[in-house]
Write a protein that binds this DNA or RNA. Sequence first.
DNA 1: ATGGTCGCGTAGCGA
Length: 266
Amino acid sequence: MPLSFATWNVNSINARRPTALEVLKEIDADVVCLQELKCEDGKFPRSEIEDLGYNIETHGQKTYNGVALLSKHRIEDVRRGLAGMEDDPQSRWIEALIDAPGGVVRVASLYAPNGNPIGTEKFDYKLKFMDALLAHAKARLALEEPYVIAGDYNIIPRDEDCYSPIAWMEDALFLTESKAKYRALANLGFTDAFMQVDGGGHHYTFWDYQAGAWQKDHGIRIDHLMCSPQAADRLEAVTIHKSARGKEKPSDHVPVVGVFRDGKAK
DNA sequence: ATGGTCGCGTAGCGA
């Protein structure tokens, strides 16, 4: 049976009720990586999501950030916080092993720093976090596991991934230094799932609430499924669930879902 | 040129 992985920045899991449940039912992924929960672990709506058939591991935070893993299969070896960022109070990383029938897959839910405004400690923090991610990703590659780092990278990889490169020129999400971190991850051997199966331009995962961005299709592609070679070899399809942005009280991000073949069957 | 919108939490920051 194929295994599907979703990444979705919900922009507050509690503000997204009941829309989040509707979207989760629609995408019906085996594993869902959530970002920007904006709540402590105790305030996460566990039972409603458990009722959809998910095991849940959260790494929450009051008011800001917060990430979670939902899985229809057993979750093992859970790690909260990114290696090398042990002193960071911001909850931006949770990683675990998914015990799927077609073989185990390691997965991480990532919420990378925004980094604006540039020229401040916020941008330095973004680069520092990305460097820690690169070091961790490199160490993980040595395990030669199917591994998916799914999340809001807050990086627009190419000109075609935004409606107007000029509008984003001075933004932390589009700065050369930021794009270089995404490229470094690709150079290590990680494949952007969307790029592998599509690669076309002007497919977005985020539309700002402001200035009618959704109505004008002024979006950007910043939510990515980055796959180890062992995961990329099994990738079948990727869907960006654009319709989620048109719902009542939507998140400003939409889910991205990748479907992977079994590892065992040959 | 500026303001345009959400969420948290109840002012002003973060995005």
